[in-house]
């Protein structure tokens, strides 16, 4: 086992853990280029044919500017109604990139874990690839569990929502449905929040235990999810993400009408989201490490 044993720091508060996550990111800031670069590349390839199609349709017409302007329903529907087949093909291609991107997320999560494990030592980015290779399969299994958990959660939400019938003809008033919808949405949101805590703890435990089987780590993670400390750390991560999102939306609203500015702040916010993802993973790992040491 590497630095884990030698790095003997105790965290007295959740905020300290979170701050340590930030420090870890600052130490490994170059990973953001990698995360962003791959994301950009994949989307660039996926969107290429769509871009070509739109080029062919509007580049030599009076719509050449409107295509990038404010939302234009007629323009959109003329594209759909007159080039629907080609559009469908391109969108299918775009959607097909979801799977490789998800695999990349799994891989990169393993890579990030490797960098985090070395903290506070700075290691070359080659460790990222090593970590990706090492944890991919286990994280992929974990990902399938979280996906299943989320699907079960949504299905349960739908079952509860439709309990008593969804037919409008049977409803006394739609207000019942609206109330039910918001309550269930909040419940699903809470469930998703707990699942996100669970997967971070599970990743940390998998990385700490180095077991091939992840069941033990998952069970332990499930139990640890409901601890005050885990929920507190999850909340800090979530609140920062919400804060950043609100700030982004505010800035976008204020200056986003300049297209180029909108694109730039959109990209900045994207990198920030990736950074926060890294920080969340790091902070939960540090919490796990602290628990092990304690």
């Amino acid at each position: 086992m590497i630095e884990q044993a030698t790095y003997n720091k105790t965290y007295t508060s959740t905020l300290q853990l979170y701050r340590e996550g930030w420090n870890c990111l600052i130490l490994n800031w170059r990973v953001l280029f990698l995360l962003h670069g791959l994301s950009f590349l994949m989307v660039f390839i996926a969107l290429g044919p769509l871009s070509n199609l739109l080029k062919k349709v509007v580049e030599k017409t009076n719509y050449h500017e409107a295509i990038a302007g404010p939302f234009d329903y007629t323009l959109l529907m003329d594209i759909i109604n007159n080039h629907g087949e080609a559009l469908k093909l391109n969108l299918t291609l775009l959607l097909s990139f979801v799977i490789p991107f998800f695999l990349w997320l799994v891989f990169s999560s393993g890579g990030m874990m490797q960098l985090i494990k070395h903290y506070p030592r700075k290691v070359p980015l080659t460790e990222f690839w090593k970590g990706g290779a090492e944890y991919s399969f286990r994280f992929l299994r974990l990902g399938s569990y979280t996906l299943s958990a989320l699907l079960i959660l949504c299905a349960a939400g739908f079952v509860l929502f439709s309990a008593g019938g969804l037919s409008p003809f049977e409803l006394e008033s739609e207000s019942i449905l609206i109330t039910k919808f918001w309550i269930l949405l909040a419940a699903i949101g809470l469930g998703a929040f707990l699942i996100s805590i669970f997967k971070e703890i599970a990743k940390a435990k998998i990385a700490s235990n180095q077991d091939t089987l992840i069941t033990k780590a998952n069970l332990a993670a499930a139990a640890a999810t409901f601890s005050t400390r885990a929920i507190g750390l999850g909340l800090v991560n979530l609140l920062v993400l919400i804060g950043c999102t609100l700030l982004y939306l505010l800035i976008k609203k204020l200056i986003g009408h300049w297209l180029i500015v909108a694109i730039i702040i959109g990209q900045v916010f994207l990198i920030l989201r990736m950074a926060l993802r890294f920080i969340m993973q790091a902070s939960f790992y540090f919490q796990e490490r602290a628990n092990v040491q304690a």
Binding site: M42, L47, F102, L105, T146, L150, S196, K199, F269, L270
Partner: peptide, 13 residues
């Protein structure tokens, strides 16, 4: 937009 949408997948892992 597509990058932001894909980034949502990170809720799974």
């Amino acid at each position: 937009s597509a990058q932001h949408s894909l980034e949502l997948l990170s809720v799974l892992i």
